[in-house]
Design a protein around this nucleic acid. Structure first.
Lengths: 187, 187
DNA sequence: TCTCCATTGTACCAATTGGTACAATGGATG
DNA sequence: CATCCATTGTACCAATTGGTACAATGGAGA
C-alpha cells in the first residue's frame, strides 16, 4: 500500500501551511494527516518527536529561507545596501503573499507556543534585526539609529500582517510595505 | 459549599489572562477552572455558550476598555488631537504593561481563532483605525494621509508587541512607543 | 424561622487528543 | 528471482477534551 518516496521539502511546506492555518495546538494529528496525505506511521517515522519536531523543522525551514533570501543579502558587505533593502521588501511581499499569508513565527511568538519554541522564534527575529541594522549602518546610519530603524521596520511588517489579517484586508500590508519602501529609500 | 457572589468583572479579567497565556485552543477548561477557582458548573452557568462565549465576553470587555480610554478620546472633536494622541500612547504603555503583555485581539487575529471571532477582531482594529485617523485629520492631515499614518501607527504598536515577545525584550515595545510619540508629535 | 431558588461542585459522558505497536508492502540490492 | 529492510497504513492506547446532568448548598424574602 505504501506509495514510497515522499518529497521531504514538500512535506515541510505542507506542515507549515497546517500550522499557519490552525496554529500549533489547533493542528491536530488528524488535520496533519489530512493535509499531508500521510498516515501517522509515516509522520512519526519522519518525525519521531511528534508535533514538536514537526514544528521545529518547519521553523528551521522558514529561517533557512529568510537567511538565504533576506538576512544574507542584508548582511552582505559587498551588496549595495539600497539593493538589499529593496530585496527584503520584495521577498516579504512574495513570502507573505501580499498580506494574505500570516507570519508563522510571529504567530508562534504571540500564541500559546511562546515558550516552547522560544529559541527558534527569538533567533529568527534577532537575526532579522541584526542583518537589517547592519545594512542600514552600511547605508550611513549611526549604530543606534540603525538598530532603531531596524526594529521599527520589522515592527511595521509584522504589525501590518496582524492588521491585514484582522481587518480581512491584505492590501493593508501592501500599503505598509510601500510606505516602508519610501522610508527606507530615503536613508 | 458554594462561596456565592462572584465578581463578574474580576472573572472576565481572569478569563482574559488565561486566553492571553494559553491561547484559545490552549486554554482548556481545566486551565480555566484552575485560573478562576470556579468549577465547571459555575462557568457554564455564567457562560452557557462555553469557551466561545467566554472569549466573546473577554473580547467585548477589551473593546469597551479601549473605547473608553482610547477610541473615544481620539474621536472626540472637543479634545485637542495632540492630547488624545498622547493619551493613546500612555494607555497602550499601561495596558500592554510596557511590552510584557500581549495583545489578545492581535493574537486572535494571527492565531487559529482568526475566523471564529472575526467580527470582534475586525471591529476592534477598525474602530482603532477610524478613531486614530479622525484625530490625525483634526490635527491637520489630509484624509488619505491620516488613514495611512493611522495604519502605520497601529502596525508599529502591534508589531513591536510581537517583536518584544519574540525577543523576550519588552523594552523593544517601549522604544517603539517613544519613537511613535515623536513621530505623532511632529504632525 | 422556614421556604425557595440562584449558584455551585462533582460525577459523568462521548469524542478526540497525541502517541505507540506492528504487520504488510514493495523497491533496491544481490 | 530471492531477500531484505526502509517505509507505510491501521488498529489500538490511555489521557484529556469540551460539555451535560444533577444534587447539595446557603443567602434572600416571607
Amino acid at each position: 500500500m505504501p506509495a514510497r518516496i515522499h518529497n521531504p521539502d514538500q512535506l515541510i511546506a505542507q506542515l507549515g501551511e497546517v500550522f499557519r492555518e490552525h496554529g500549533f495546538d489547533g493542528a491536530s494529528m488528524a488535520a496533519i494527516t489530512a493535509a499531508t496525505g500521510l498516515g501517522k506511521g509515516s509522520l512519526y517515522h519522519a518525525f519521531p518527536g511528534g508535533k514538536d519536531e514537526m514544528a521545529t523543522a518547519v521553523l528551521a525551514d522558514i529561517e533557512r529561507w529568510f537567511q538565504d533570501e533576506v538576512f544574507g543579502p542584508l548582511g552582505n558587505p559587498e551588496l549595495a545596501p539600497a539593493l538589499a533593502l529593496g530585496r527584503m521588501l520584495d521577498a516579504c511581499e512574495t513570502y507573505f503573499e501580499g498580506g494574505g499569508r500570516v507570519c508563522l513565527v510571529g504567530a508562534f511568538a504571540l500564541g500559546e507556543t511562546r515558550d516552547r519554541f522560544h529559541g527558534a522564534v527569538s533567533s529568527y527575529f534577532g537575526n532579522w534585526r541584526d542583518a537589517l541594522s547592519s545594512a542600514l549602518g552600511r547605508a550611513g546610519l549611526a549604530e543606534a539609529d540603525a538598530i532603531a530603524l531596524a526594529e521599527e521596520a520589522i515592527s511595521r511588517i509584522q504589525g501590518s500582517l496582524v492588521l491585514a489579517r484582522a481587518l480581512g484586508d491584505p492590501a493593508c500590508f501592501r500599503r505598509e510595505l510601500a510606505r516602508l519602501r519610501a522610508a527606507l529609500g530615503a536613508v
